[in-house]
């Protein structure tokens, strides 16, 4: 199965069989569920340093990620679907991040925003306090490069996450797909 990229012109998964006075929509339940999930991802309010400023600007009027279904940032992990790790994770924060992730209900997704969350970034060398990548603590779905990434880059990551959810594949399946296509 291909990783299916749903273009915006295809708003609802499935095919319409035209009949008199309307049509019958044929789809699979999985696809509908994934479609619904991907279009309503509530991020957790979680910003640990400078990248959080960029995340806030992505949320604010100019870039406005609510256009893609991310509008309701939640201050409690129990109501959040996606955690955008916006900033440096230090050793003292690591258990907190793990607990927040554990408290989120399934299905849950993680975006590592910026160099710090991806690898430790500018704090990779000669630091006693920084975790060298948030994926040492929780599994990450999408990584964004940059220090900090531009709001466009974060939007791209959010859309990539949506595509990933819509494709309905696990991480290993996606990796297999990419290998099969030689990239």
């Amino acid at each position: 199965m291909d990783v299916k990229i749903t273009p915006p012109s295809e708003p609802f998964p499935g095919t319409v069989h035209p009949t008199d006075g309307g049509g019958v929509l044929v789809s699979s339940l999985d696809e509908v569920i994934n479609w619904a999930r991907s279009n309503s991802l509530w991020p957790l309010v979680f910003g640990t340093s400078c990248c959080a400023i960029e995340m806030m600007s992505t949320a604010a009027a100019k870039y406005d990620f609510s256009r893609f279904g991310f509008e309701v940032a939640r201050a409690t992990p129990r109501q959040a679907d996606v955690i955008i790790i916006a900033g440096t994770i230090v050793n003292k924060m690591a258990p907190v991040l793990k607990r927040l992730f554990d408290q989120m209900p399934d299905p849950k997704y993680v975006i590592a925003m910026g160099a710090c969350a991806t690898s430790g970034g500018p704090f990779f060398y000669n630091t006693y306090s920084v975790v060298k990548g948030a994926d040492h603590i929780i599994p990450v779905d999408v990584y964004v490069a940059g220090c900090p990434p531009r709001p466009e880059a974060l939007l791209h990551a959010l859309i990539t996450l949506q595509e990933k959810i819509k494709s309905g594949l696990t991480r290993d399946q996606i990796r297999g797909e990419m290998k099969a296509h030689g990239n």
Binding site: K92, Y125, N126, T127, Y128, K132
Partner: peptide, 23 residues
Amino acid sequence: LTDDWKGHPLRKDYDDPINMIKL
């Protein structure tokens, strides 16, 4: 830092072989 921390990290001679990757 935590109460049981050993050493003072902003001293130039501070070393932490577990967490620090030296350049």
